[in-house]
Simulated assay, not measured.
Amino acid sequence: MWLRIAIGCPLGCGQFKAGAGSGGSNERRPENATRFTSTIYRCPELPPSSAPFEFLAGEGRWGIPDPDGDFGPQPIDARKTRLSNIVQETGAKTIHYLYDFGDSWDHVIKLEKWFDNTTTEGLPLLLDATGRCPPEDVGGVPGYADFLEAIGDPTHPEHEHMRLWGPEQFDPNIIDRKALEVAVNALSEIWKPRRRTTRAK
């Protein structure tokens, strides 16, 4: 599956994870818009909040550090930065977003262009899309390949089982453009910057 989306900056890593889904500065750039090409093996639906994830760019890793530190070198806390910070700090034009370490879905996020002094009204915006999202719990890239092989071959021993298990009349090349637009438009509320409130003393 491949998407091209225009998004407004700033966008937090946690916000991206909530849509799909680095310690950085607090600089806000509300007048910038960014266009990303996202070539992904899993669609950016709302993943469970407990699902592990990491962003990889340059030599850096961003994720949720293990509070006990039992799993080797810890990633930078992704809750304290934004994707724009990662791009600016590393100079990377490609970011890998790894989601669900069991199935190892790899979202390849490519920065195509940074637009300065543009309005963020109406963003995010779906510009283009190809391919269909793989079924949930299909078993990662290898499992998805096995699934496609089975449903595409009536003589395959798992054909009937996979046909009944997966979405009805699944075609990896057919996309529901309207449904994708609705999903991307809904992200505008999730990704909207929150106003800080001052507590009364």
Rank of each mutant, 00 (worst) to 15 (best):
residue 181 E to T: 02
residue 135 P to C: 02
residue 71 F to M: 11
residue 75 P to C: 15
residue 178 K to P: 00
residue 60 G to D: 14
residue 115 F to S: 13
residue 54 E to I: 08
residue 21 G to W: 12
residue 154 P to S: 04
residue 183 A to N: 02
residue 14 G to N: 07
residue 183 A to W: 15
residue 117 N to V: 09
residue 6 A to Y: 00
residue 131 G to R: 05
residue 15 Q to D: 12
residue 53 F to Q: 06
residue 73 P to Q: 14
residue 92 A to Y: 05
residue 80 K to P: 00
residue 54 E to S: 13
residue 180 L to N: 03
residue 38 S to P: 00
residue 102 G to F: 12
residue 123 L to H: 11
residue 130 T to C: 07
residue 197 T to D: 10
residue 143 G to S: 06
residue 131 G to D: 03
residue 15 Q to W: 00
residue 159 H to F: 06
residue 97 Y to D: 05
residue 42 R to I: 03
residue 35 R to F: 02
residue 104 S to T: 07
residue 45 E to Q: 10
residue 86 I to W: 12
residue 26 N to K: 09
residue 32 N to R: 13
residue 68 D to M: 12
residue 123 L to N: 11
residue 193 P to M: 09
residue 168 E to G: 05
residue 144 Y to G: 13
residue 179 A to G: 03
residue 187 L to H: 07
residue 185 N to K: 14
residue 87 V to N: 03
residue 137 D to S: 03
residue 151 I to M: 11
residue 86 I to D: 01
residue 199 R to W: 11
residue 162 M to D: 02
residue 156 H to Q: 05
residue 93 K to M: 08
residue 104 S to I: 03
residue 14 G to W: 02
residue 115 F to I: 12
residue 45 E to K: 12
residue 198 T to G: 06
residue 66 D to L: 01
residue 1 M to C: 00
residue 13 C to G: 12
residue 154 P to Y: 08
residue 14 G to D: 09
residue 146 D to T: 00
residue 161 H to R: 13
residue 179 A to Y: 04
residue 144 Y to F: 13
residue 58 G to R: 13
residue 83 L to Y: 06
residue 48 P to G: 08
residue 68 D to A: 15
